[in-house]
């Protein structure tokens, strides 16, 4: 898998006098597992917003699946996002009055057609088929994050984008979530994770370190990739 799924060319994001991102260049191949790390204010969230089609760069180009999305309007970005991106949030953001399976179906509804059977399969994939009809408040943090992952996966996105997906989880649930990522990676899903957690960062195939809006390190962890996974296991 060496096809480029994502390419950032000289991307900058400027808020007044602040450069949240400064001249970023990054290529991600389909099937890669990438972790983005860095201290607070280093530009991680800005970068994930741009990759996730929730924001546009002030300068530069973002090529997603061969299409330059850097100048698209909000409606086009919405269409691209729902077709190509699966989002996972630190705070899960499940709709409190919908059950787990309904939360997954919401993403289906805005993509194409809700299909409960398919939503149940997605929940089964993250080991939550028995909790499908529970409300978020009746689920643990780890279970809620797994529902969030099922929701992100339901429309078969080209990139799974996680913003601190293990940030609110205990060690046991963190391991479960990382294991799900590993299986998804095995299935060929491209994963980009923003994380503070060095252990989660180390598990990825490639680690990008951001500081003051610049990539200061791009570490290829392919050599230790398998080992890291084993460590997790």
């Amino acid at each position: 898998m060496s096809d480029k799924i994502l390419e950032l060319k000289n991307v900058s994001k400027i808020y007044g006098s602040l450069k949240a991102l400064a001249d970023i260049n990054l290529s991600v191949n389909a099937g890669d597992w990438l972790s983005i790390m860095g201290p607070s204010g280093s530009g991680k969230t800005t970068m994930i917003n741009i990759i996730g089609c929730m924001d546009t760069p002030s300068l530069g180009n973002v090529i997603l699946d061969g299409v330059d999305i850097s100048k698209e309007n909000a409606a086009n970005l919405t269409r691209i996002r729902r077709n190509k991106i699966g989002l996972i949030f630190q705070q899960f953001h499940l709709i409190s009055y919908l059950t787990a399976v309904e939360n997954v179906m919401v993403a289906q509804y805005y993509h194409s057609m809700p299909d409960e059977e398919e939503a149940m399969e997605a929940l089964a994939k993250v080991g939550l088929q028995d909790r499908a009809h529970h409300l978020p408040a009746q689920l643990s943090g780890g279970e809620q994050q797994r529902v969030c992952i099922a929701r992100a996966l339901i429309n078969s996105p080209q990139i799974l984008l996680g913003d601190e997906p293990t940030g609110n989880l205990d060690e046991e649930n963190e391991a479960i979530v990382v294991d799900i990522f590993r299986r998804l990676h095995d299935e060929g899903v491209t994963i980009i994770i923003v994380t503070h957690d060095p252990e989660v960062g180390d598990v990825a195939q490639r680690k990008i370190i951001l500081e003051h809006g610049k990539i200061v390190n791009d570490i290829d962890q392919s050599a230790t990739f398998g080992e890291a996974l084993k460590l997790r296991n």
Partner: peptide
């Protein structure tokens, strides 16, 4: 905001 992030149009 979540619905927008999931792909809902305005």
């Amino acid at each position: 905001g979540l619905l927008k992030a999931l792909g809902a149009y305005n």
